[in-house]
Design a protein around this nucleic acid. Structure first.
Lengths: 228, 228
DNA sequence: GTCTATAACCGGATAGAC
DNA sequence: GTCTATCCGGTTATAGAC
């Protein structure tokens, strides 16, 4: 297990070169077909050097995630700046996720499974992924708070994390989607974002009050020990 | 890629011996720590022979799944024979899942991730897993149909598949659960089964009619191309 | 102390002789 | 249907170079 943060100028360059080589190759050939030796070759360093900067192949994936997250955040900034309607903000944000990830569609499957492993350091529910997870949850908090929707406090508290989970669900669906232009995913997004906003609106109905309290309590008890 | 169904008596025996060795070792050491060489050793056959019967290590996992499914089905048979209340049937069934799987808790994580890979032949949403998936969905149809609950036809149609998905969600939660006696999972099961049954009961409320139709339509459109 | 390189090790998978 | 020998790729050990 090697150091992760380069101390010198030269080290920083090497790290960037290796990472770029990896990102390129993942896109070109997919995750599994990309060997660590090929990454080292393209980066014109030795295999051992790659491992000096990235303790495992999986760790390159985490960077990959951060990369797409940053693309995504940049893509939706204009929308979030001008739009006030919650449904529109949410739809635009989730649509942008799949649009941003489209170039990586072929790779996404194996990456997803790598990362789904609970014992993987990269598991989205785990500790190593916390900084990135927090950023994404933060983004969804902004989606909600920047809207003109009036949302009960107990729901507002849980909503960003729930939307992060929802985004992961959409991505898993998208991975399987073979329809032209990934049209089915887009349809599902339109339908589900609308339903979510509607459900939040209905939550104040007297008949649903009881269930709402229970659902929120349940979610809190699930989420809290996990992400504390 | 070798044949999967042995043609001779001797072949059948070899296959069984290898499978048993694998199941034992998975439980003893976990999935990743169990090497194909160790399996072959314990089965007293050569490495090559193992690959004659099981084209990959993953294929041993599918048998593992079927094994636990059969334990589960046997465990809940008495309950399903005597009990009529839907909530009780559902709670008992899902509780039995995690109880049955408890001996494999340590292994479950890596197995889950192996299987979550969309390009894995063992992906639960894929073709190779269809026979087993159909069996499990069938079991949930029995849980629902054997109850005295009166369920609208459109919901009844989707419910078994939905419960199968729900079971997978519970299992993923259970994998992360480190609480003594897996108590947190059991609590979540009690709470969620109750909520599900309540939600099915509320579905006839006028305010929810519209959303219900939309949700069901959505689920159908998601599920149909996938499992046709 | 920070990087880089070479040479192994290990385990999943395959080829091909018997 | 069973074996041995081999490949291949992730990972590690470790020695030297800056």
């Amino acid at each position: 297990m090697a150091v992760e943060a380069p101390k010198t100028k030269r080290g920083e360059t090497s790290r960037a070169v290796i990472l770029n080589a990896a990102l390129d190759l993942f896109q070109e050939r997919g995750y599994e077909a990309t060997t660590m030796r090929a990454i080292a070759d393209r980066a014109a360093v030795s295999l051992g050097s790659s491992y000096h900067y990235f303790p495992s192949k999986e760790h390159l994936v985490l960077e990959f995630y951060r990369h797409t997250h940053e693309l995504h955040a940049a893509a939706i900034a204009p929308l979030l700046a001008r739009e006030k309607d919650l449904a529109t903000r949410l739809r635009g944000t989730i649509r942008a996720v799949v649009v941003t990830c489209e170039p990586f569609h072929a790779v996404a499957g194996s990456i997803f499974s790598t990362v789904a492993n609970p014992s993987s350091p990269l598991n989205p529910f785990g500790g190593a992924a916390k900084p990135l997870r927090d950023d994404v949850v933060e983004l969804y908090a902004h989606v909600v708070n920047g809207s003109d929707a009036r949302i009960p406090a107990d729901i507002a508290e849980m909503l960003p994390l729930t939307l992060w989970l929802y985004q992961m669900g959409i991505l898993y669906f998208w991975i399987f989607d073979r329809s032209p232009g990934r049209l089915r995913t887009l349809e599902v997004i339109d339908e589900t974002t609308d339903l979510i906003v509607r459900l939040v609106g209905l939550a104040n109905l007297p008949v649903l009050r009881g269930s709402r309290k229970r659902v929120l309590g349940l979610m809190k008890s699930i989420v809290e020990p996990q992400f504390a």
